[in-house]
Structure formats: structure tokens, C-alpha cells
């Protein structure tokens, strides 16, 4: 079992590199945590992300689930601190100096460059999540789950449903149909 600092270092890496928000790191996480380090199974990776949608606050609190699986309670806090602290510190510092740098040419150029990169990385994260969620299913359950995925996206994007409600609905349908 890895110790606190090993888990912390791994998640600090995510915390520093996750431009575009936490979802941008999902692809890297599944590669590193599941394939390379074997701290999690593919199933735990997707289940943990799903559980993170259930709790209030930032949905990347799923990191605490991953840390918990890797190294117990200490690991949960290591996962949290590593993922959340670098961005929070950087945001606080930037809030201080922003009034001075915001009119500069390079700050506009950096913003223009970072937004599409974050978007592309997030799309990669969604692809990894999809792959992980569907990889262990047989054809029949994969089709039902695929319909659930599209339905969930539609209800949230077009109908303005709360994600909490959608997660409860998909869980209920899954309990009835997906086994």
C-alpha cells in the first residue's frame, strides 16, 4: 500500500497539470492509477467518479475516493490536497496581481491559448471515462447503458435537469434493467 506522500505527489501532478478543470485529467489518471500503478480497478475508477457526482461541492472530490482506495484515510486527504491545493493557491495569488497584468498582451494570448487546450483535454477525459465505463459490459447491457448516457446528457443539457436527479434516475434504471 502506498504511503501518504506517494499518493500526495501523484495527485499534486494532477493538480498542477489539470488545465480546463479536473475532467481534463481523467485520461491521464486512468492511465496512471489503473494501468500503471494498479491502485484502482477500472470498475473502481468509474464507480468513484460516479460517486463524486452524488456529493455536493466540487465534483472532483472523487479524488478522495481514489486516494482512500489507494491508502485509506490518509490517502483520501492526500488525494484531496494534491488535486485541490495547487489551483487554489494559484487562484489566490493571481487574484492579487490580476489588476496589474490583465491589460498586458501576453495575458490575453495565454488565455486565448489555454481555453481550447483545456477543452480538448476535457474531451479526452470524457472519452477515457466512456471507455472505462463501457469496457466491462456485454453488448446488451452496453446498449442500455449507452441509451442512459445519451438520455442523461439530453436531460441536463436541453431540459436543465439537476445532475443529482439524473444520477438517481440512471441508478434506479440500472438497478432494474442492467444485470
Amino acid at each position: 500500500m502506498p504511503d501518504f506522500f506517494t499518493v500526495l505527489l501523484e495527485f499534486v501532478r494532477y493538480g498542477i497539470l489539470s488545465f480546463g478543470g479536473g475532467v481534463a485529467m481523467l485520461s491521464e489518471m486512468s492511465r496512471s492509477l489503473v494501468t500503471e500503478r494498479h491502485w484502482l480497478s477500472t470498475r473502481e475508477f468509474t464507480d468513484g467518479f460516479a460517486l463524486g457526482q452524488f456529493v455536493p461541492g466540487p465534483n472532483m472530490l472523487a479524488m478522495m475516493f481514489y486516494g482512500f482506495r489507494a491508502a485509506g484515510l490518509a490517502g483520501a486527504f492526500a488525494g484531496f490536497l494534491g488535486m485541490f491545493l495547487p489551483g487554489a493557491i494559484a487562484s489566490s495569488l493571481l487574484a492579487r496581481v490580476w489588476e496589474r497584468v490583465k491589460r498586458s498582451k501576453w495575458s490575453w494570448a495565454i488565455r486565448a491559448a489555454l481555453l481550447p487546450i483545456g477543452l480538448g483535454l476535457s474531451a479526452g477525459g470524457v472519452l477515457s471515462l466512456t471507455r472505462a465505463a463501457f469496457s466491462s459490459l456485454n453488448l446488451q447491457t452496453a446498449i442500455v447503458a449507452g441509451v442512459l448516457t445519451l438520455l442523461a446528457a439530453f436531460l441536463i443539457y436541453s431540459k436543465g435537469f439537476s445532475t443529482m436527479l439524473v444520477i438517481l434516475l440512471t441508478g434506479l434504471v440500472g438497478a432494474l434493467l442492467l444485470h
Binding site: T141, A152, A153
Partner: peptide, 15 residues
Amino acid sequence: GALTGVAAGAVGISL
């Protein structure tokens, strides 16, 4: 089954 459903829903949310 519930967890599989929830995982599918979570993919939909991120989409």
C-alpha cells in the same frame, strides 16, 4: 446494475 447505471449517467453529465 445501479452502479453501472450511475456510471453511464456520469458519462452523460460530463458530455
